[in-house]
Design a protein around this nucleic acid. Structure first.
Lengths: 212, 212
DNA sequence: GATTGTGAATAGATTCACAGCT
DNA sequence: AGCTGTGAATCTATTCACAATC
């Protein structure tokens, strides 16, 4: 299987990227069950996806499947992990030790496999030092040193909206490379420091629309 | 019928719906600042949106703006609130009083304005009765009575993946109308009980892709 | 003069359907 | 015989550009 080309990102659309994550999750489950091979149709049926779309999505990374047979689960899984940048562990810090930040610090999903939270920061003096799951809340002054020392790539921003922009800027200056933003506002993005917004109210509002 | 046409949902696409929420948030902010009128261009510039798209999105609800002038902020805001089903308060319950569920129960954003959490449920006997913000954790047996008595419409599902489907089914049977799902799996959706998935790991995976 | 609302143009995403491998 | 990979067709979304309106 010639895997020479496409080491450069072929500029995936957000929709495709999202689906690749879904495929990866499905493949990991199938892999755990011991299945060696799976066809696009089986995958589609089991996980309510579109077989044609699975093939189109995957085909852009070369010929990953075997015609007449299907996909090798382990191989495809590995390939998607590389595409999604999950072949190694990524370190993250959380800024904002309120409800959401503290919950995330304790959330096992964020501390197993591909991601690990190595710091939890807050401005409030009365929060500093408090133990939250495996972490202790640290003052903001320790953000930049931590990021530099441990080569932290990801920042999780869980502060109130009115201080979110300045906290984002601090993350940028500290050397963070990408930010997951829980504050309900549109941050002004700095070059090279990508933002992914997670706005719980917007999710609820979308549901509310269907309630009429 | 007070507002004539389009009381029936004109079947908005998820992308449009998402943007309408963003517009509403922007308008609320502008409204608070006391601004009476705003043009699509001003809105676009301030919030990094596309003016043409704002106009196209809004135009499907009739002629909401005034040519040569712009949009009346208060009127447009009200209109979007109706479209998004936010003209009244929606009650919600949380099933799963773990990290995420407890954080959401305490999250002020979910308890002000258009949404109110009126119940927090869990199976674990040692969690029952624990105070979490304004709520006490209740046993699952009280879910259906609560939903029925208070006409709860929204369910927030924050349980582990392996019990998510059965807890979703319980919500459906209890009479919940729409579910925000934090469990990392694809639920089998029942007719009329819409699901919105919020998968934190998928968000991180999308960011990881850009870290290479 | 300014700004909306909109048809036409463009770009993008999904589905179809089948040639080409195994 | 079965399933992938893919060009063509379709569907959807976005942007353009300007006539209609204030």
């Amino acid at each position: 299987m010639p895997t020479g080309h496409f080491t450069m990102n072929p500029e995936l659309s957000p929709l495709t990227l999202n689906r690749l994550s879904v495929y990866l999750r499905a493949l990991r489950q199938v892999h755990l069950e011991g299945t060696q091979r799976i066809s696009s149709l089986e995958l589609a049926n089991r996980f309510h996806l579109s077989a044609a779309q699975i093939r189109k999505d995957l085909a852009q990374f070369g010929e990953l499947g075997i015609r007449g047979v299907g996909y090798d689960v382990g191989h495809l899984r590995g390939r998607l992990e590389v595409v999604l940048g999950l072949q190694r562990e990524h370190l993250a810090v959380i800024v904002g030790a309120g409800n959401i930040g503290s919950a995330l610090a304790r959330f096992p999903g964020l501390n197993s496999g591909n991601f690990r939270v190595v710091g939890l920061f807050d401005v409030a003096p009365n929060r500093i030092g408090v133990e939250v799951g495996p972490l202790r809340v640290q003052p903001m002054s320790e953000l930049a040193p931590t990021v530099a020392a441990r080569q932290v790539e990801l920042g999780i921003l869980s502060v109130p909206a009115d201080v979110a922009q300045e906290n984002y800027e601090m993350m940028v200056r500290a050397g963070i490379r990408a930010v997951l933003n829980f504050a309900p506002l549109q941050l002004r993005e700095h070059d090279g420091v990508r933002i992914k917004n997670v706005d719980l109210l917007i999710f609820l509002e979308e549901l509310a629309h269907f309630l009429g």
